[in-house]
Design a protein around this nucleic acid. Structure first.
Lengths: 168, 168
DNA sequence: ATTGTGTTGTTACAACATTACACCCAGGAT
DNA sequence: ATCCTGGGTGTAATGTTGTAACAACACAAT
């Protein structure tokens, strides 16, 4: 579980193309959710979401705790609490393959099957909903009588930019 | 070596239906791999694989360390080393959604897209290869220029048996 | 004012995974 | 026989990820 943040060392293009998500959009969705649940959208939640949105890449909870530090030093447990809220709100997803969290400005419909594509080089995540994948999963399940509830699809590979810049 | 201890008692279904894996088949595959790599198939590796095959369900490394104890008490790190070998050999897979490991007697072709279906109730894992899912993933990738390398698909749900026996 | 609900700060701990190093042991070369 | 070497093993220490538990606080509704 220890993802090496940069397993190859020396990358030429580094902080670059993990293109940020729309921070305002994602925050307003979080606010709506907060209202709908009758709970506050606190500064704590706001900071964590803002950091994730600005970064545009998955970060571990501990990484978030370090980087948020606008003066105060956050403890991991506080970050986890914020992340829990943000995941419920649908603004943040967890990447199980990396134990990392990232902001997402898409609004996923209920029961939609979403594919996370994670670049092995730069860490950026792209999402896509696929009805074809959903059908495939239903098919796979049917042959064994399995009742699918909660699919988790994470594909490691190379994003267009990293594939285009093969190496250096 | 040999079949499971087979703890089938009077119990309704408890430890039971995580049944799968052919221990002999999976061990012989591990042996072939060891030969091909010029490394030994040690008792350590054998015990870990045998335990996983007999259990037929995913177990954490620490759980394995506890249960293997045929006299000796294994440390987690030793289990991880065995698991590393067994995963390379393709006999064991890791479930990221549970940080757990399980034996698998299917021989997955290179580039095959395999779906792991994990029962939320009993923990049993079923596998299925799906060309439809594979096509869906390729499609999702194509729209963004992403180059998929290593998909990871885990679906949580209920297996046929647990769905049939609604509650505890 | 009191009560209730929810957030925060803090400590402690549980669960998962790796690094480092010394030792052993087999096989081949000297 | 001896040395060398490459893996495997045993052990300790540590790193990483995630929760539990509890006191203190904020704020709104009674």
């Amino acid at each position: 579980m220890h993802r090496n943040p940069d397993p190859r060392g020396t990358r030429a293009h580094e902080e670059t193309h993990g293109h940020p998500v729309d921070g305002d959009a994602v925050e307003s969705r979080a606010r709506s959710y907060a209202v709908s649940k009758g709970v506050p959208f606190t500064p704590m939640r706001q900071s964590v979401l803002a950091l994730l949105a600005a970064s545009g890449k998955p970060m571990s909870a501990y990484e978030i705790a370090e980087k948020v530090s606008d003066a105060r030093k956050l403890k991991a447990v506080q970050v986890y609490r914020a992340l829990e809220f943000l995941q419920e709100a649908g603004c943040v997803h967890r990447l199980a393959s990396r134990s990392a969290y990232f902001a997402c400005d898409h609004l996923h419909g209920e029961g939609e099957t979403v594919v996370f594509m994670v670049c092995a080089q730069c860490g950026a995540v792209q999402e896509a909903a696929s009805e074809l994948v959903a059908r495939g999963l239903r098919g796979a399940a049917k042959t064994t009588g399995f009742r699918p509830r909660h699919p988790m699809i994470e594909v490691e590979g190379e994003c267009a930019e990293c594939a285009g810049t093969p190496e250096r």
